[in-house]
């Protein structure tokens, strides 16, 4: 129940943040937190909900959000073997990788859909994504209830 309420609040705040700063994904840090502390089923359910929100609200054809969260999942999984997933340095590196991934994915989708590509605006969004990701991750990680962390530690 507590987990459901916490993730509901996280998602609502994420939507608010995304309408405030268009072009930035506020849910991405949630995936890092969920993968670290929760069972994989919970992460999958959250990711499906976030994909639906991103695809429904966005202006591109279906596909961007699936690729985006697949890249994030891959980076988080591979990164966990090499670095401490709880360190801010790892998350800052991940932020840079996400900034680059955002640019490449948007460019790919714009080319496939034959849409104009607003280069300067997208570059600004990539920079924001890279800077905001570790900050948001730190906030989410700190605010994630200890009780839920303990539950995961015991079951692990």
């Amino acid at each position: 129940m507590l987990a459901t309420l916490w993730w509901l609040a996280f998602t609502v705040l994420g939507i608010w943040g995304q309408s405030l700063l268009p072009g930035v994904d506020f849910f991405a840090p949630g995936m890092a937190v969920s993968l670290r502390w929760q069972k994989s089923g919970a992460t999958i359910a959250l990711t499906v909900a976030w994909v639906a929100i991103q695809e429904g609200a966005g202006g591109l054809a279906f596909g961007y959000a699936i690729l985006w969260y697949a890249i994030l999942f891959m980076l988080l999984t591979v990164g966990r073997w090499l670095l401490d997933p709880g360190s801010i340095q790892f998350q800052a590196l991940l932020g840079l990788a996400l900034g680059l991934a955002h640019f490449l994915l948007l460019y790919l989708m714009a080319v496939l859909e034959m849409r104009a590509f607003p280069l300067l605006r997208v570059l600004g969004e990539c920079l924001l994504q890279a800077v905001l990701y570790p900050v948001l991750w730190y906030a989410a990680e700190s605010l994630f209830p200890k009780r839920l962390k303990r539950v995961r530690e015991e079951s692990a």
Binding site: I15, Q18, S19, P22, G23, V24, D25, I53, Q54, E55, A57, G58, G59, L60, Y64, A65, W68, H102, L106, M109, A110, R115, F117, P118, V122, E125, Q129
Partner: peptide, 15 residues
């Protein structure tokens, strides 16, 4: 009900 929202909001749109 919304202006540009989210990372896929590459186009100038409203909902």
């Amino acid at each position: 009900i919304a202006h540009r929202v989210g990372p896929t909001a590459i186009l100038e749109t409203i909902l």
